[in-house]
């Protein structure tokens, strides 16, 4: 366990039980197939510049029960905070939270310079235009749910949504953690089976879908820091990651200044900003790092069992 004690809130021995009901599993499988096809076929999944490469590869998808007690824990000060709303505060009657991780395409990832303090044009464009596609996907998932007799709400696209002092009313990363997609790195991003270089989205629904089993128990389980990694610390051009920043490992203000002001100024004519050094050229960029905790590096038999349980992540 690498995390500071403050993060014990997310220790959860009572992960959602495997739901044996065929209906909710089939519904989740249909949704997964729809999302995969949508990401592969919608024309907005492309950069507007250059050869218009694809921004996202097909996502990982996970489902959390709306009543999962971890959502209540997110309201704890210092976790996300009291402003964070539960699924049922966004959608009365909520049953499930569908969460996805969109991994950047190889073209976008490979464009990122290894040594420059600045990102590539493809990266900053992918960050901006990729989030537009993420919005498109959120709306498509809502339509899918409505066609199947349910309701859907994407908190991050609701008019009331905002982040106050960097505390969001809905945390996509924490929802993804609860939905079994991955655990955090000290850089603040979620490390999934496909790494951390990507973006996260979610939709809350009143349809009951089978929750994805969380194959981890600890918030930093997939992050090998401090014993076997720490590669993101020297890579950050803003020196915004490190133990000196306390339990969160990160100085968010430095991070924002780098992405918004430094990178934003460099790409001013393009209208883009944001940095991605902590998501690229790292052992966790496109996988769970080999040096992560023993539980994250399971033997094959155990890994297979995990794969079967996390059926949605086989997208």
């Amino acid at each position: 366990m690498n995390a500071a004690p403050e993060h014990a809130y997310l220790l959860d021995p009572a992960a959602p039980e495997e739901d044996s009901r065929r209906d909710s599993r089939q519904a989740a499988e249909h949704l997964a197939a729809f999302v995969r096809q949508f990401v592969e076929e919608d024309p907005r999944n492309a950069l507007p510049e250059g050869g218009r490469p694809r921004i996202w590869e097909p996502p990982l998808l996970g489902v959390a029960a709306a009543g999962d007690p971890l959502f209540t824990r997110l309201k704890t000060p210092g976790v996300v905070g009291p402003l964070h709303r539960s699924p049922k505060e966004w959608l009365p009657g909520a049953q499930s939270v569908i969460s996805w991780f969109l991994p950047y395409s190889k073209a976008v990832r490979a464009s990122y310079p290894k040594k420059s303090p600045l990102p590539s044009l493809a990266w900053v464009s992918g960050r901006r235009n990729g989030e537009v596609f993420n919005n498109v996907l959120r709306r498509a998932v809502i339509r899918f749910l409505e066609k199947h007799g349910g309701q859907g709400v994407a908190p991050s696209n609701e008019a009331q949504y905002q982040a106050i002092g960097m505390i969001p009313l809905w945390s996509e990363r924490h929802a993804a953690f609860i939905a079994g997609l991955g655990s955090f790195g000290i850089h603040g991003a979620l490390i999934t089976r496909l790494g951390c270089a990507g973006r996260i989205g979610s939709v809350i629904t009143d349809l009951e879908l089978s929750p994805t089993r969380r194959p981890y128990r600890e918030i930093y389980e997939y992050c090998p820091y401090p014993d076997r990694c720490g590669a993101c610390i020297p890579r950050c051009p803003a020196q915004a990651i490190g133990a000196q920043f306390g339990a969160n490992w990160r100085d968010n203000a430095r991070c924002v200044i780098q992405g918004r002001d430094v990178v934003g100024d460099f790409f001013k004519d393009w209208g883009y900003h944001s940095c991605g050094h902590c998501l690229t050229w790292l052992p966790c960029a496109d996988r769970i790092p080999r040096a992560s905790s023993p539980r994250a590096q399971k033997p094959k038999a155990e890994a297979r069992e995990e794969e079967e349980a996390a059926f949605l992540s086989t997208l």
């Binding site: 989030e131 919005n135 709306r139 991050s156 008019a159 949504y161 905002q162 969001p168």
Partner: peptide
């Protein structure tokens, strides 16, 4: 609202 989010500079609202 869709369009406001699609043109928003950040994901903070």
């Amino acid at each position: 609202i869709w369009i406001a989010y699609d043109f928003a500079r950040s994901t903070s609202g």
